[in-house]
Simulated scan of single mutants.
Amino acid sequence: MTASGYFPLAKTLLVAIVTTTISGCSLFSPVDNETRVALINKLPQGIPQRETHATTLLVLAPAINPAYDTVRMIYRIQPYQIDYFSKHEWGATPAQMLHPLLTQSLENTHYFSTVLTPPYFGPYNYALHAEIIELTQDFTSNPATLHLSLRVRLTEGDSNRIISAKAISLQEQLQENTAYAGVIAANEATAKALQQITEFVLAAVR
């Protein structure tokens, strides 16, 4: 190889080596495209407890607004519109996560001899119906807030008569504008909602 041909080739190789070294992280590190999966599983700490009665409660699977019946994590950056995080989702739908938490919270009151869940076709004294209206991380406010809205009602087992109903609306501030901060806020709001629901049920069955 002539000297005139050697130096352009050497220059090309040097540029390639430098470029590879600078971009080594992107070439040899895995691309961060994994989805983060989060849970809502926080129970309230101050659940009221009562003496056990020979009373059974059926906790039905919560209904849910169809817009929120998904594992996709929802946020809002402008009014009247929702969007979904691309790399963050729930481990189950909000209704699927809430149902066992409702059941556990009501069992922890010790008031009911049995807390039942579907599928169950036998007799029971009361039934708890819950509906999730909204679960949204709202970035239109400052600070951002987690909105959780529910409706619950308690009915008699024999007649299906509504004994009492309650609307619950909670707003929990996010500590920072991230999806994970929204997960923490969702757990806090859910625990507060469960506290209110257990108090509501115990007041209605007295």
Score class of each variant (00 low, 15 high):
Ala144Val: 06
Thr117Val: 15
Ser26Phe: 07
Glu172Cys: 01
Leu170Arg: 02
Asp158Val: 02
Phe7Lys: 12
Lys42Glu: 14
Ala54Ser: 14
Leu146Asn: 05
Lys11Pro: 00
Ala186Met: 07
Phe200Cys: 05
Leu194Pro: 13
His99Cys: 04
Lys192Ser: 14
Pro30Gly: 02
Leu102Trp: 10
Val205Lys: 00
Ser149Phe: 11
Ile77Thr: 15
Thr12Gly: 08
Val115Glu: 12
Ala61Lys: 12
Leu202Asn: 08
Ile132Asn: 07
Asn125Met: 05
Tyr80Gly: 02
Gly157Ala: 04
Thr2Pro: 08
Ala186His: 05
Thr145Ile: 15
Ile77Val: 15
Thr20Asn: 09
Tyr124Cys: 08
Ala203Ile: 10
Thr2Ile: 06
Ile82Pro: 02
Lys42Leu: 11
Gln196Thr: 01
Ile82Phe: 11
Ile132Gln: 05
Leu150His: 05
Ile132Cys: 08
Gly24Arg: 00
Glu34Phe: 01
Thr21Trp: 13
Ile77Pro: 04
Pro8Val: 07
Leu57Trp: 09
His110Ala: 02
Ser149Gln: 08
Pro94Phe: 12
Val183Thr: 13
Met73Tyr: 12
Asp83Gly: 11
Leu60Lys: 11
Thr198Val: 09
Pro100Trp: 04
Lys11Gly: 04
Ala63Cys: 03
Asn177Asp: 14
Asn187Pro: 01
Tyr84Ile: 04
Thr19Cys: 12
Ile64Asp: 03
Ala181Asn: 07
Glu107Ile: 13
Thr2Phe: 06
Ile17Gln: 02
Phe121Leu: 10
Gln137Glu: 15
Thr155Leu: 05
Gln175Leu: 11
Ile22Lys: 00
Gly182Cys: 04
Val59Asp: 12
Val205Cys: 00
Thr21Phe: 14
Ile74Arg: 09
Ser86Ala: 12
Ala144Met: 03
Glu89Met: 15
Tyr84Ser: 07
Thr56Asn: 02
Ser4Lys: 13
Thr35Ile: 15
Tyr68Val: 05
Ala127Thr: 03
Thr117Gly: 09
Val37Ser: 06
Leu202Val: 11
Pro48Ala: 08
Phe85Asn: 06
Leu148Lys: 04
Ile77Trp: 03
Tyr68Thr: 05
His129Asn: 13
Ala203Asn: 14
Gly122Ala: 10
Glu89Gly: 09
Ala67Phe: 08
Ala165Met: 05
Gln173Tyr: 07
Phe200Gln: 04
Ala61Gln: 14
Met73Cys: 08
Asn33Ala: 07
Tyr180Arg: 01
Val183Tyr: 06
Gly24Tyr: 06
Lys42Trp: 00
Leu106Thr: 11
Leu116Val: 07
Val15Gly: 00
Thr103Ile: 15
Phe112Leu: 12
Tyr120Phe: 15
Phe28Met: 07
Ala193Met: 07
Gln45Gly: 06
Glu131Asp: 03
Asn108Pro: 07
Ala63Gln: 14
Phe121Ala: 11
Val201Cys: 04
Tyr80Phe: 15
Gln196Val: 04
Gly122Asp: 09
Ala92Phe: 08
Ala3Glu: 07
Ser86His: 11
Ile64Tyr: 08
Leu13Trp: 12
Tyr120Ala: 10
Leu39Phe: 12
Ser141Met: 14
Tyr180Ala: 03
Leu39Met: 13
Thr114Ala: 13
Pro62Phe: 12
Thr35Arg: 14
Leu57Ile: 08
His53Met: 04
Thr109Val: 10
Gly122Arg: 08
Glu188Gln: 03
Thr140Lys: 00
Thr190Ser: 09
Val37Gln: 09
